[in-house]
Amino acid sequence: MSEVAEKTKAPKEPLFSKKNRKLVTDPLTDNNPITIQVLGICSALAITVQVKQAVVMSLSVLFVMVLGNIAISLMRTLIPSRIRIIVQLVVVASLVIIVNELLGAFLPDVSEQLSVFVGLIITNCIIMGRFEAFAMANKPWPSFMDAVGNAMGYAWILVVVAVFRELLGSGTLWGIQIFGSNLPGEEWGLYKVGYMNNNMMILPPMALIIVGVIIWIQRIRNKELQEEH
C-alpha cells in the first residue's frame, strides 16, 4: 500500500519545483552560509587576496560539497548515528585529497598559494554543517540543490571580498592591471597622477572588516536579520 502511495506521490514534485529552487536561492541571500549562519569563515578570509585564488577555492568547495552531499545523502540510512561525524570526515577528507591532487597537477602555482587552506576544506564548517543538517535527512536530488546553493552563497562573498582586496590592494583584477602600471620609472595611468595602492587591503584584518561591512549592508536591507546585541 505504502509503496503505491509513494509511487504516485513521487512524480508530483518536479525537479525544479519551487521548494527545490528555494534550496538554491535561499543560501545566496537570506540564509547565506557566511554572513548569516557564520560558517566556513576559517578558510574564506585568508585566500581572498586575489580573485583567482578565491575562484579556485570556491570551485574546490563546490566540488567537495556537491559530491559529498550526494554521497552522504545516498548513505544516510546506512550510517549509524554514533559514528556519523567520523564517516562524514572520511568522505570530506577523501574528496579533498582528490581536489588537492588535481590542483597540484593542473594549477601548481595557485595550489602553492592556497597552501594549507585546501586541506582545511575538510574542517570547513559549511560542509560539515550541510551534511549534518541537510544530507543526513534528505534525498540525493534536494541535497544536490542544497549543496549548489550553499557553495554559491559561499562563493559570491569570497569573490566580492577578493575583488575589493585585489583592486584596491594591488590595482589588479585576475592579475590584469586596472589602474595602469606602477613600475618605478615607467608609471602610467592613475599612478602617474599620484595614485597609490592601499597596501592595507592585502593584510589579513581588512578581509574581516570588508565582510563586516557586507553584513552591515545586508542587515540594513533586511531588518529581520538584525540582532539584539
Binding site: 584584518p205 542587515r219 538584525q226
Partner: peptide, 25 residues
C-alpha cells in the same frame, strides 16, 4: 559592548567582525 550604542544592523556579528579586524591590526 552591550552597553554601547552600536548601529542596529551592525549589532552582534557585524561589529564582532570589525572588532576582530581592528584587533588583528
Amino acid at each position: 559592548i552591550r552597553y554601547s550604542q552600536v548601529p542596529a544592523p551592525l549589532r552582534g556579528l557585524g561589529i564582532t567582525f570589525i572588532l576582530t579586524g581592528l584587533m588583528g591590526i
